[in-house]
């Protein structure tokens, strides 16, 4: 599992540019599903037959990043954010564009800290002139922050753990599931970080009976953290509410029941900021009962998002449990 997470987090694929990560996931799962397709927006949908209800599992494979907006005469790049990117996370970091070009972040001289915004920052790709810069990078090119995978033992940190760890959970579940009792549509969605866009269109096409997103959530267990009753290493989190979704009561109850039956450690999650793919899925067509299986993660949207592998294992077990439990959509 550690190897898989490292492999997936090493890849740069910001929203709208998911080619590399999609190809890596496709390679991982192609032996483990009955059908594999890529829809028009780029969502990767792995189908596995089991009969019964149509369940859409969604893990977004895009990551936050930057987009080049302007190249100045000296060859410095100005950029905008793709998804929720804090300027404070960028100083001292490096960026990799989707073609492999590298750069480092710089900051203008500021009078006061409160002036520190993204538009006071720039990217230095080592160019000495506008012309030289333009040979390597064009306006509109996407990049992602790079950071080495850090193996801390039971815990690991990497960039884009949000949501490559969710992808890894879904991949592992697909590999492990023995006897699916539902029709499974494992969807690796695009463009979640810019507004749940891939989930919205894939759910419209799939018309699922049930939607379950697999994504990261925040924790409240670091020094002076915002109060939140989710802790790292305390099990998979079952979402009750975030800004995009109030989990369907019976879906939440199903997840809790399965966790209890299978003795999977779990915790209940109320996230006061942020949303995830189920927010889009549950509002699809005439409505889809939906929930979320979350992996507690520290330092979300930083270059070092930190998780506990035991929580990941619990998440895999819970996803497999749902896959192997007959779900009657009319009578959950």
């Amino acid at each position: 599992m550690k190897e898989l997470i490292k492999k997936l987090t090493d890849i740069t694929s910001p929203s709208g540019n998911e080619d590399l990560i999609r190809e890596a996931i496709r390679e991982e799962i192609k032996e483990y599903c009955d059908d594999l397709k890529i829809d028009r927006l780029g969502n990767l949908i792995a189908f596995k037959h089991g009969g019964g209800a149509k369940i859409q599992f969604a893990a977004h494979m895009d990551e936050i990043g930057v987009i080049v907006t302007y190249i100045d005469d000296q060859g410095f790049l100005r950029f905008s954010n793709v998804g929720g990117l804090s300027p404070f996370q960028l100083l001292g970091q490096r960026v990799r564009f989707t073609d492999g070009t590298l750069g480092v972040f710089g900051l203008e001289k500021l009078e006061q800290m409160k002036d520190w915004t993204l538009n006071k920052m720039y990217i230095d790709i080592g160019a000495t002139s506008k012309e030289e810069a333009e040979e390597k990078v064009a306006v509109g090119e996407f990049g992602g922050i790079i950071q080495d995978f850090a193996d801390l033992g039971r815990r690991v940190a990497a960039k884009s753990m949000d949501n490559r760890v969710g992808c890894a959970v879904l991949i592992e579940a697909l590999k492990r599931v023995q006897s699916p009792r539902n029709d499974l549509y494992c969807t690796f969605t695009v463009q979640e970080e810019v507004g749940l866009r891939g989930a919205k269109t894939s759910a419209f096409a799939i018309e699922p009976d049930l939607g379950i997103a697999v994504d990261v959530t925040l924790t409240g267990d670091t020094p002076e953290a915002e109060k939140m009753a989710v802790g790292l290493g305390k099990g998979v989190a079952i979402k009750v509410k975030d800004q995009s979704l109030i989990a369907h009561r019976r879906v939440k109850e199903l997840l809790v029941r399965l966790a209890k039956e299978k003795k999977i450690p779990y915790q209940l999650e109320v996230l006061t900021r942020g949303g995830t793919d189920s927010g889009a899925i549950h509002l699809t067509r005439a409505g889809v009962p939906s929930g979320v299986i979350s992996i507690p993660t520290r330092y979300v949207h930083s270059p070092s998002e930190l998780i506990d592998l035991e929580d990941v294992e619990a998440a895999v077990q819970l996803v497999v449990a749902v896959m192997e439990t007959p779900c009657d959509p009319e009578n959950l």
């Binding site: 109030i246 549950h282 509002l283 699809t284 067509r285 005439a286 409505g287």
Partner: peptide, 13 residues
Amino acid sequence: EVGLRGALTSAYG
């Protein structure tokens, strides 16, 4: 109260 969610899906149906 959390985003007109029920109206959207019921109207679709």
